[in-house]
């Protein structure tokens, strides 16, 4: 924790988070029927957005790894999976906090909710499979699993959508169902969360690289 407090980057991002918060609290209007609770939406959507981007990155990096076998693409996939899981956790936790006052239930088996939960489980499994990437086999097998997971996501989504859906659709092909001010607040929070994603990604990739070097040195010492 001390190390985090010493980093200028960390403080920069704390400031950005506060900026997003103030835009959400002061700038964005209060929704007429739902009231203040609706503002959970901004974090909820932003973290869901980052989660989806992160998992798409895992898919792309996994393909790249199987193709080029570069350590960088493996680290990218692993770091992205981890951060994506953190943000998906945020989505899964903020969702019920909005749903309870509005739907009067913490959880329902709606397509989006179910898909998000399955996504979380799949990437938790991916991280468990990858481990620290201690061997070439683990990296390769995790890459294969990352590809399978991504292909499975639409299947999960459409099967649950067929079943039932009550989740509000804010962004559809017809446009965004938000007032202009709300839209600005949403884009600000999505922007801040995206920057946060890239920052964490860089940090995690660096530590994974260090891990690799430590492992390499240990092997060298034992040889």
């Amino acid at each position: 924790m001390k190390d985090a407090l010493k980093s200028p980057f960390f403080w920069g991002f704390t400031l950005l988070m506060l900026l997003a918060l103030s835009v959400i609290v002061y700038y964005a209007p209060v929704e007429r029927t739902m009231g203040l609770v609706q503002k959970v939406f901004y974090f909820h959507v932003a973290s869901a957005w980052v989660g989806l981007v992160a998992h798409t990155v895992v898919f792309a990096a996994s393909i790249l790894y199987l193709w080029k076998r570069s350590g960088g693409s493996d680290r990218l996939a692993r770091a992205s999976a981890e951060i994506g899981t953190v943000f998906i956790s945020c989505t899964l936790l903020t969702g019920p906090l909005w749903a309870y006052p509005i739907w009067n239930t913490w959880w329902t088996w709606d397509p989006r909710l179910t898909t998000t939960l399955v996504l979380w489980f799949m990437y938790a499994a991916y991280i468990a499979l990858h481990g620290g990437g201690a061997s070439e086999a683990r990296k390769r097998l995790a890459a294969v699993y990352g590809i399978i997971c991504f292909i499975n996501v639409p299947l999960v989504f459409f099967s649950t959508r067929w079943w039932r859906s009550i989740h509000p659709v804010v962004i559809s092909s017809e446009g965004i169902a938000l007032t202009p001010k709300m839209r600005v607040a949403m884009f600000v929070s999505v922007g801040v969360f995206s920057v946060l994603y890239f920052y964490l990604l860089r940090l995690r990739m660096k530590s994974l690289e260090l891990q690799e070097r430590v492992r390499h040195l240990k092997a060298q010492l034992l040889a």
């Binding site: 489980f121 799949m122 499994a125 468990a128 997971c149 999960v156």
Partner: peptide
């Protein structure tokens, strides 16, 4: 089972 179950949801 951890790898299999989420894939098998559909």
């Amino acid at each position: 089972p951890i790898l299999a179950f989420p894939l098998l949801i559909p």
